[in-house]
Amino acid sequence: MTAAVSPPDAKAFRAALGRFATGVTLVTTRAADGQPIGLTVSSFNSVSLTPPLVLWSLSLGSSSQPYFDTAVDYAINVLAADQIELARLFATRPLASRFDGVEWTAGVNGAPVVAGCAAVFECRANARHLAGDHTIHIGEVLRCEHREVPPLVFHAGGFDLTPK
Protein backbone atom coordinates (compact mmCIF):
# COMPACT_ATOMS: atom_id res chain seq x y z
CA MET A 1 0.00 0.00 0.00
CA THR A 2 1.39 3.38 -1.04
CA ALA A 3 0.81 6.40 1.15
CA ALA A 4 -0.98 9.35 -0.41
CA VAL A 5 1.41 12.20 -1.04
CA SER A 6 0.35 15.76 -1.74
CA PRO A 7 2.37 17.79 -4.24
CA PRO A 8 4.44 20.62 -2.73
CA ASP A 9 2.96 24.08 -2.65
CA ALA A 10 4.34 26.49 -5.27
CA LYS A 11 6.51 28.41 -2.76
CA ALA A 12 8.21 25.26 -1.44
CA PHE A 13 8.68 23.88 -4.96
CA ARG A 14 10.25 27.12 -6.17
CA ALA A 15 12.57 27.27 -3.13
CA ALA A 16 13.76 23.70 -3.77
CA LEU A 17 14.33 24.43 -7.47
CA GLY A 18 16.38 27.47 -6.44
CA ARG A 19 19.00 25.17 -4.93
CA PHE A 20 19.97 24.13 -8.47
CA ALA A 21 22.39 26.62 -10.02
CA THR A 22 21.79 27.33 -13.69
CA GLY A 23 23.18 29.46 -16.46
CA VAL A 24 21.30 32.48 -17.79
CA THR A 25 20.38 32.90 -21.45
CA LEU A 26 18.66 35.32 -23.76
CA VAL A 27 16.50 33.44 -26.24
CA THR A 28 15.95 35.56 -29.33
CA THR A 29 13.99 35.43 -32.58
CA ARG A 30 12.41 37.82 -35.09
CA ALA A 31 8.74 38.73 -35.39
CA ALA A 32 7.07 38.45 -38.80
CA ASP A 33 7.78 42.17 -39.36
CA GLY A 34 11.49 41.68 -38.56
CA GLN A 35 11.37 43.15 -35.05
CA PRO A 36 13.87 41.41 -32.73
CA ILE A 37 12.18 39.56 -29.86
CA GLY A 38 13.94 38.18 -26.80
CA LEU A 39 13.64 37.22 -23.18
CA THR A 40 15.74 36.00 -20.26
CA VAL A 41 15.55 32.23 -19.78
CA SER A 42 17.29 29.98 -17.25
CA SER A 43 15.55 26.73 -18.24
CA PHE A 44 18.09 25.54 -20.82
CA ASN A 45 19.61 22.05 -21.28
CA SER A 46 21.25 19.82 -23.81
CA VAL A 47 19.14 16.95 -25.18
CA SER A 48 21.19 15.09 -27.79
CA LEU A 49 24.60 15.17 -29.44
CA THR A 50 23.45 13.39 -32.62
CA PRO A 51 21.59 15.27 -33.88
CA PRO A 52 22.62 18.29 -31.78
CA LEU A 53 19.47 19.22 -29.82
CA VAL A 54 18.85 21.61 -26.92
CA LEU A 55 15.73 22.54 -24.98
CA TRP A 56 14.33 25.50 -23.09
CA SER A 57 10.92 26.29 -21.66
CA LEU A 58 8.66 29.32 -21.76
CA SER A 59 5.70 30.25 -19.58
CA LEU A 60 2.36 30.23 -21.38
CA GLY A 61 1.70 33.67 -19.85
CA SER A 62 4.83 35.27 -21.31
CA SER A 63 4.37 38.20 -23.68
CA SER A 64 6.94 36.44 -25.91
CA GLN A 65 4.95 33.20 -26.13
CA PRO A 66 3.06 34.03 -29.37
CA TYR A 67 6.32 34.79 -31.19
CA PHE A 68 8.04 31.58 -30.13
CA ASP A 69 4.93 29.48 -30.83
CA THR A 70 5.48 30.24 -34.51
CA ALA A 71 9.25 30.86 -34.64
CA VAL A 72 11.13 28.64 -37.07
CA ASP A 73 14.57 29.89 -36.02
CA TYR A 74 15.90 31.28 -32.76
CA ALA A 75 19.17 31.80 -30.93
CA ILE A 76 20.06 30.87 -27.38
CA ASN A 77 22.62 33.39 -26.15
CA VAL A 78 24.40 32.16 -22.99
CA LEU A 79 25.23 35.27 -21.02
CA ALA A 80 28.73 35.96 -19.74
CA ALA A 81 29.23 36.86 -16.06
CA ASP A 82 29.61 40.55 -16.95
CA GLN A 83 26.22 40.67 -18.75
CA ILE A 84 24.00 40.75 -15.66
CA GLU A 85 22.36 44.01 -16.81
CA LEU A 86 21.27 42.34 -20.07
CA ALA A 87 19.64 39.55 -18.06
CA ARG A 88 17.73 42.11 -16.00
CA LEU A 89 16.82 44.24 -19.04
CA PHE A 90 15.36 41.30 -21.01
CA ALA A 91 13.46 40.12 -17.91
CA THR A 92 11.87 43.46 -17.01
CA ARG A 93 11.78 45.92 -19.91
CA PRO A 94 8.70 45.97 -22.17
CA LEU A 95 9.03 43.54 -25.09
CA ALA A 96 9.16 46.26 -27.78
CA SER A 97 12.17 48.04 -26.23
CA ARG A 98 14.37 45.18 -24.98
CA PHE A 99 16.85 45.52 -27.84
CA ASP A 100 17.23 49.31 -27.48
CA GLY A 101 20.97 49.97 -27.17
CA VAL A 102 21.89 46.26 -27.33
CA GLU A 103 24.63 45.25 -29.76
CA TRP A 104 23.60 42.27 -31.90
CA THR A 105 23.91 40.80 -35.38
CA ALA A 106 21.64 38.54 -37.41
CA GLY A 107 22.64 34.89 -37.15
CA VAL A 108 22.65 32.30 -39.93
CA ASN A 109 18.85 32.36 -40.20
CA GLY A 110 18.21 35.89 -38.97
CA ALA A 111 17.78 35.31 -35.23
CA PRO A 112 19.53 37.98 -33.12
CA VAL A 113 22.96 36.95 -31.82
CA VAL A 114 23.89 39.19 -28.89
CA ALA A 115 27.47 40.48 -28.71
CA GLY A 116 29.78 39.41 -25.88
CA CYS A 117 28.01 36.21 -24.82
CA ALA A 118 29.83 33.19 -23.40
CA ALA A 119 28.18 30.93 -26.00
CA VAL A 120 25.53 31.05 -28.71
CA PHE A 121 23.40 28.23 -30.11
CA GLU A 122 21.61 29.10 -33.35
CA CYS A 123 18.65 26.76 -33.67
CA ARG A 124 15.84 25.63 -35.92
CA ALA A 125 12.64 24.65 -34.09
CA ASN A 126 12.45 20.86 -33.89
CA ALA A 127 9.51 20.25 -31.52
CA ARG A 128 7.26 21.98 -29.00
CA HIS A 129 5.55 20.21 -26.11
CA LEU A 130 2.93 21.66 -23.81
CA ALA A 131 3.77 20.72 -20.21
CA GLY A 132 1.84 22.24 -17.32
CA ASP A 133 1.99 26.01 -17.54
CA HIS A 134 4.96 26.03 -19.95
CA THR A 135 5.88 25.07 -23.50
CA ILE A 136 9.07 23.05 -23.85
CA HIS A 137 10.92 24.11 -27.00
CA ILE A 138 13.40 21.69 -28.57
CA GLY A 139 15.77 23.18 -31.10
CA GLU A 140 18.19 21.58 -33.54
CA VAL A 141 21.51 23.41 -33.31
CA LEU A 142 22.59 24.66 -36.74
CA ARG A 143 25.63 26.57 -35.52
CA CYS A 144 27.28 27.26 -32.17
CA GLU A 145 30.25 29.15 -30.86
CA HIS A 146 31.74 30.00 -27.48
CA ARG A 147 34.29 32.22 -25.77
CA GLU A 148 36.50 31.26 -22.83
CA VAL A 149 34.79 33.55 -20.31
CA PRO A 150 32.83 32.72 -17.14
CA PRO A 151 29.05 32.40 -17.64
CA LEU A 152 26.40 34.27 -15.66
CA VAL A 153 24.92 31.94 -13.01
CA PHE A 154 21.51 32.09 -11.31
CA HIS A 155 21.07 30.40 -7.93
CA ALA A 156 18.62 30.64 -5.00
CA GLY A 157 16.58 33.40 -6.60
CA GLY A 158 19.50 35.65 -7.55
CA PHE A 159 22.61 35.99 -9.65
CA ASP A 160 25.76 34.31 -8.33
CA LEU A 161 28.30 37.12 -8.25
CA THR A 162 31.08 35.05 -6.72
CA PRO A 163 34.35 35.82 -8.56
CA LYS A 164 35.33 32.94 -10.87
Rank of each mutant, 00 (worst) to 15 (best):
L152H: 05
L142A: 13
N126S: 14
T2Y: 12
A118S: 13
G116Y: 02
R30E: 09
A31D: 03
L86P: 00
G110T: 12
V120T: 15
D69G: 15
I136Q: 02
R88N: 12
A91P: 01
S57R: 01
V27Q: 03
T2I: 12
I136D: 00
A87P: 00
G116W: 02
T92V: 11
F154S: 11
V78I: 14
D160F: 09
D160Q: 15
S6F: 00
L95M: 06
E103T: 10
A15R: 11
A125W: 00
F159S: 06
D33F: 04
C123D: 04
G157S: 10
L39Y: 01
V113A: 14
A21W: 03
A127L: 05
V47A: 11
V153N: 15
V24H: 01
R143K: 15
L53M: 12
G61V: 09
D133S: 15
V24L: 02
R30P: 04
N77S: 06
R147N: 07
A71V: 00
A4E: 11
A115I: 11
A12T: 12
D82R: 15
S42R: 09
P163R: 04
E145M: 11
A3Y: 09
G158C: 11
T92F: 09
D133T: 10
A81I: 08
A32S: 14
A119L: 12
A10C: 13
R30D: 07
P150G: 10
P94L: 09
A91L: 03
V41S: 06
P112W: 07
I84N: 04
A87S: 03
V78N: 07
D69R: 14
A96D: 04
L130H: 00
H155G: 09
P51E: 03
H146D: 11
S48D: 06
L60S: 13
Q83R: 04
K164L: 14
K164N: 09
T2V: 15
P112N: 10
F20H: 11
A75L: 11
L152Q: 05
P36T: 15
S57A: 03
S64W: 00
G61H: 10
I76C: 09
N126I: 05
V41C: 12
A31L: 05
V78P: 04
H134N: 01
Y67S: 02
A71P: 00
F13G: 08
V72T: 11
I136N: 03
D160A: 15
P112E: 10
L55M: 12
